[in-house]
């Protein structure tokens, strides 16, 4: 949509399992003029390597990033565009938090808790940035909660360390909460937020104790999504539904303790492209994959050695 607006050529490397699970998202992109390639593909050197080492892999964001970066640097006139993790994206997404902050002021409402779903941090960072600024400048106090999937728990079980941003190890190293660049969440995980790492800015804020995080199982997340759809009317994206689950849990805690508080959460999008995931929830076949400590230890063992 953005490329079409500025009449730019757009090539998309789409994680293979998303390419297959979300055919309509793929077709929307093609309608707006993008060419879409499932990743790992055979059209880049790193894609070929990953396919050779992991035959039949369903791909990961880390693989797709490597392929897109390789394609950008090897083709004249192309640059890499990304959806999350880096600081430039958090900057642009601050429009979400700034609008929220202004609207709440106009309504005369001061929030107590601000909740966002966390994959690479684009929505969470964008939503909380202006409010975090108030906290950092000593003007206000808020609780911030990152809601992440238990199947890809970067904040709650990751290491705060330098790691590769991509599987192909072509991108710069970033210090962040990470599960290891080779970590790939189970293919049964349908809730998005699949990135192995996290925004460096949010990682540092979390390390400073300015933010909390909760890890949520996907069946609990989809239960909240269904409840929200039936009460508020909006069909939420699975990603957004992590924030809904965390909000419901917080609101029920208020109820149990007889406490009033004001909660603001980010509803990042709609779930029309995720009906395959809803179908497995509705059919009762959705499972909760949570990586074991051994799985994570094996992944942490491959973190690059960088002096702290």
């Amino acid at each position: 949509m953005a490329s079409a607006f500025f009449k730019l050529d757009c090539r998309v490397y789409m994680v293979k399992c998303s390419y297959e699970q979300k055919p309509f998202r793929r077709e929307v992109m093609r309608t707006y003029g993008a060419s879409v390639t499932p990743s790992p593909s055979m059209s880049t050197a790193i894609g070929k390597k990953i396919n050779a080492e992991h035959p039949g892999t369903t791909g990961s964001l880390g693989c797709a990033i490597s392929e897109a970066v390789e394609a950008a640097v090897t083709h004249e006139g192309y640059r890499y565009v990304l959806g999350s993790v880096l600081s430039q994206v958090l900057l642009h997404q601050s429009i979400i938090g700034l609008e929220t902050q202004t609207a709440l002021r106009q309504l005369g409402v001061k929030p107590d808790v601000i909740i966002g779903c966390a994959g690479g941090g684009s929505n969470l960072g964008g939503l909380i940035s202006p409010f975090m600024g108030e906290v950092l400048r000593g003007e206000a106090q808020y609780r911030f909660i990152a809601a992440e999937p238990a199947s890809c728990p970067s904040f709650t079980r990751g290491r705060y360390a330098y790691d590769f941003c991509d599987t192909g190890r072509v991108c710069p190293l970033q210090k962040m909460y990470t599960l290891g660049a080779d970590f790939i969440p189970s293919a049964s995980h349908a809730g998005g937020l699949r990135y192995h790492g996290m925004s460096a800015t949010l990682s540092e804020l979390y390390a400073q104790g300015l933010m909390e995080a909760v890890a949520l199982k996907q069946t609990d997340v989809f239960e909240a999504a269904q409840f929200f759809a039936r009460t508020e009317g909006i069909l939420p994206a699975p990603e957004s539904s992590h924030a809904i689950r965390a909000t419901i849990d917080e609101a029920l805690k208020c109820k149990a303790e007889g406490r009033t508080e004001t909660i603001v959460f980010g509803l990042t999008g709609t779930g029309y492209f995720d009906m395959t995931a809803y179908q497995s929830f509705n059919d009762g076949t959705m499972s909760d994959f949570v990586p074991s400590d051994e799985d994570l230890a094996a992944s942490f063992a491959k973190l690059p050695a960088i002096p702290a």
């Binding site: 949509m1 997404q93 994206a237 609101a251 508080e261 909660i263 990042t268 999008g269 492209f273």
Partner: peptide
Amino acid sequence: AHIYYKFEGNNTSGSHKLNS
């Protein structure tokens, strides 16, 4: 509790990603 949400799904792409 009073609950508010900022809804970013009202554009064709269906999510906040369009902002960046």
